[in-house]
Design a protein around this nucleic acid. Sequence first.
DNA 1: TCTCGTCCATAAAGGGTTTCATTGGTCGTT
DNA 2: AACGACCAATGAAACCCTTTATGGACGAGA
Lengths: 341, 341
Amino acid sequence: MTIYDISKMAGVSIATVSRVLNGNANVRPETRKKVLDVMERCGYTPNAFARGLGLNSMNTIGILCADSSDLYLAKAVYHIEQNLRLGGYRSLLCCTGYELENKKNSLSLLLNQKVDGVIMVGSNFIEEDDADNQYIRDAAQQVPVMLLNADFDYPNVYCTLCDDFKAAQEATLSLIEAGIADILYLYNSRSYSGKNKLAGYQSAFLQKDLPLSREYQQYYAGSHEDVDGICHFLDGLRRSGLSFHAVFASEDILATAAVKYARLNDLKIPEELSIIGYNNSILASCCEPELTSVDNRLEDICRQLVKTLIMTLGGNQMPQKTIFSGRLIRRGTTAPLNHEL
Amino acid sequence: MTIYDISKMAGVSIATVSRVLNGNANVRPETRKKVLDVMERCGYTPNAFARGLGLNSMNTIGILCADSSDLYLAKAVYHIEQNLRLGGYRSLLCCTGYELENKKNSLSLLLNQKVDGVIMVGSNFIEEDDADNQYIRDAAQQVPVMLLNADFDYPNVYCTLCDDFKAAQEATLSLIEAGIADILYLYNSRSYSGKNKLAGYQSAFLQKDLPLSREYQQYYAGSHEDVDGICHFLDGLRRSGLSFHAVFASEDILATAAVKYARLNDLKIPEELSIIGYNNSILASCCEPELTSVDNRLEDICRQLVKTLIMTLGGNQMPQKTIFSGRLIRRGTTAPLNHEL
DNA sequence: TCTCGTCCATAAAGGGTTTCATTGGTCGTT
DNA sequence: AACGACCAATGAAACCCTTTATGGACGAGA
């Protein structure tokens, strides 16, 4: 069942059928109806490959993400897919892992598949050594490249992100203003956004004229999902003599581990240990007490990112950077406002 | 840069170039090398659309899942994508939500896109009223349809699943054998696998000649992610006079809420309340104590499912049903083996 | 009559795959 | 040595199904 069959049955040429398919205005209403009727009757759908060949597009966007089973990335992928589909695009998902070589391979896989655009989910796609980012610049030569939560200045690369610096600063300030100065910053990523969070934490101390100690900025190198490992890590810090009355974590899972650590060591939350997480994920509500966490506007970011992409593909000029403000969601692991210890 | 350019530069016909591209054996090694050299030098990659048109396939599989931000479904999608990519296939992701109409729409979206196969992730794709499942049968007419954790008997439909009945039975038995008879079964899905779990729970009571009470089988209708809502739900049950010393939940999130409920009510785990979850997700390790949970072999299932699909696409005859056995992972929310209350 | 729009058809891309025919060489037979 | 059978390697051309540029037919208005 091809466009030829339809054209014959409707008594018109294939060009007219094509015009009907593509909503071209130059078709008399009667003709249009006739063609549509035949299509309907035959259950005809145009061949997607032939269409792709003709239009050089199958309305497909490539989504790159390191690990779509990660709570945060999964949510991002979900919202992106939703928005893309509503905009008439399909989502080709590619999980790359965290190694540069794999990221490059996955990217060229998508480009070979002739996607109309690429979305990179997570700031881990920006490499430390800028020379390594050539693969992004190369891709941007072919299609628009959208970065979620990363910042990269290059033509045809569009960034949509949360101001993690400010959000982290605000979260840290809220702890300081509650009278806590020994705040452990616990993080597990040195990506672009990871760095910004750390910088935000640091800036809060500078702003309050408090001393900043390297020992209070701890990087956890283990698996994202190893809650016990994180607990032990915290335990090790305490045993090594580090004393802290608050933990600010770069991810909810780290904060969750901190809650568990407090539980295991009979520390009262928030009186003896305040905890702030990041991402405001479902883990926040799984904790007892519930986690205070930074909401980094993932849903808004995804919506805006896809909107920018679709507009760009439509030939519109769009801003290359959009920044959202995070916000602190106060729950049970921090003292309520106006509360003095 | 087309196959014509390459053929000219290499001094062969396009047929030969195509043969080289597709690994056809009937090409002299020197000729092959010559062509490959030219391709390399020109950085040539064949046009995916043209290829799709010629082969009627772009090696793409459609993945349908209700909500890829759901912890469990996200993991499934992740493993499926990994295995597909390793097998040389691309993944077109489509999140459908839980409404039949949307599932149908998403499915025809994928079929119009001419995917080589469809994977439905989650037993919620099987409808209660079998007439509604016509959309699956229709799809199976066009491409192989793979169901994850669902059972559906129809030509060209392949099912890979966990024996949830047995796993749930085993989990329930382990509680009974620890001396607990008032076991609340808490579930939030009436899908195929949800029903099997419930039946497994029931059968354990029958097997032990214990009375089975409707009141101990509670369906939670609220949001998957509303931990507080679940807590309140449990609280309501207790207040209404229901007494239970164990909770067996059809999902870890429900079990997590039960842990929280115990915490809020100062119930000792597992002495006063034993809890078993399902899926053995990361939530299990976020709890304190850690959740005993049923591991339903998701990773194995995904691997097998994709293997079956790829073999089927390769023209091999494959079994239409593969069943894995779940296993109970004992952790802190149940009494250790040989422990008598 | 000439011009201009509207509607539609013809045919040419678009870039591969694949069938079929052809060539040239190897091998076995007589 | 001559011949035919057979096979590996290759090329020409058909085919896959659209989109779209070009231009023709036709009717209306000047």
